[in-house]
Design a protein around this nucleic acid. Structure first.
Lengths: 253, 253
DNA sequence: TCATGACTTTACGTATACACTAAAACATAC
DNA sequence: GTATGTTTTAGTGTATACGTAAAGTCATGA
């Protein structure tokens, strides 16, 4: 169903596309780019993408059959995808109304950033304790450099991309798989709000500086400093987003 | 599928039990105690229970059809339950081999306790900041009292039950729903190891004292003290469990 | 116009059928 | 006995059918 099936299918599924099977179950060739996936996985990714990119706005109800029609598959893999999406916190499932895209309120953002702040600060300290590998340092410096260049060009989208890459790279350095999973889950939950408020925020000069200071603290192997810097960085970012949501009365993004 | 369906079904499902439906789908009356549930939910709870209580030992493979036979339902709700159980970290799904109960290794326990330590310590500080309600204090004192009585009677099972209740009560006091969800998820993941090592651990006199001190610190509204006490408590408990697993070569519980 | 009851429609949860292919079993050669 | 190739079996992912009941629609009365 997951993971190793995808691998096995990638190897085994080099059959001719478009074969029409003789019995009730029609088996069109799935789109093949580089990994074969179950339809349930395809559905998961497709729906998640639409949620994150606001193609399905917050509060929207979409029925199972609508999703199935849209994705050109039966309801079964759609249902399986929805179970996962609900568990990830992107949608809720309301029988006879379909899935509803969960809005992200200021309170939600408070919750999310409270957890990100706690857990990421510990990761920063962990990394400062054991030191950065060359590759890790390069990745983080690349991201901060991107942020700086983006600011020079007044390209906020580019800046946001670099910011996301920085934080993703950072959490992926954690040795604790469960910690990575939790942080990424909530970071994803905040994605739409971050994107939709991008132009409402002040220019992130200080934020960029904070990223740079954090990398320096980690390179200098100062765990307490790294923890404190990152904690402050996350707390301020969360508080600012919450403020913006409140000021603009964006209560359900 | 979840939640509100259960409510609606509870109201609407007072039909005669045992009605045999005319077409392919046989609809025996589900067992009714107080809440009606979908079969997928029934499957989730039943399988989870068997995993937690070691009826399906770690490393065990069980096929979908075996589970369906055992639970007297079709494969469909079993599949849906397995998606959730996999997401909760109790099993992995391996196509053509069925679900496999995920063992919990010493490294897993390190990961779990690292996260519990961080997040719960913050909850303890939060509660110490805002103070305990009478009901909350009563619940925690009841649990610590149970621990004390259990120790007097040398009843470790009773002690473990009180310990679990204490921690569950504590996390449920967090205002952060996501934090509650994360902590409970990982606490559940450690359940089997805690139960299976119960008799291998030293008598938890100090642990009981630590619980008592924590409640006092929270009542006294000392957030820094509460955080530090609870952090130490969780770190020591995690380290001890990891030690025991290693000493007894229990690498895959 | 609003409320209520009856009837109809439809979305869901589930069982079942089926195609596909991974895994197991079997046959053969060295 | 071991390795390899072929055949068979069976577990999964998916589509479809169906029963159930929630939701919608319609008719009627006050």
């Amino acid at each position: 169903m997951f993971g190793s099936t995808s691998r096995a299918r990638a190897v085994a599924s080099a059959r001719a596309p478009g074969i029409e099977t003789p019995a009730g179950v029609s088996r069109p060739a799935p789109d093949r780019h580089e990994t074969a996936r179950t339809r349930a996985e395809t559905a998961y990714e497709a729906i998640k993408h639409r949620v994150l990119e606001n193609a399905f706005p917050a509060g929207t109800y979409v029925l199972e059959q609508e999703l199935a029609d849209l994705l050109e598959m039966s309801r079964t893999p759609v249902r399986e995808a929805l179970i996962r999406l609900a568990h990830d916190g992107f949608v809720e499932i309301r029988p006879r109304h379909g899935m509803r895209v969960l809005p992200v309120s200021p309170d939600d953002m408070r919750e999310i950033y409270a957890i990100l702040t706690i857990l990421e600060a510990e990761v920063a300290a962990e990394i400062a304790t054991r030191g950065l590998t060359d590759a890790e340092a390069a990745a983080l410096w690349y991201a901060t450099n991107e942020m700086t260049l983006a600011l020079e060009e007044d390209d906020l989208v580019r800046w946001a991309r670099a910011d996301a890459a920085f934080h993703r790279d950072l959490i992926m350095m954690s040795a604790n798989r469960r910690q990575r999973q939790v942080v990424l889950q909530f970071w994803d939950q905040s994605h739409r709000v971050r994107m939709l408020t991008l132009k409402l925020r002040p220019k992130p000069f200080e934020s960029t500086e904070e990223h740079i200071k954090l990398v320096k603290a980690m390179e200098a192997r100062k765990p307490d400093l790294a923890r404190a810097l990152h904690r402050a960085h996350r707390q301020e970012a969360g508080a600012m987003l919450v403020r913006i949501l409140a000021e603009h009365n964006l209560t359900q993004l």
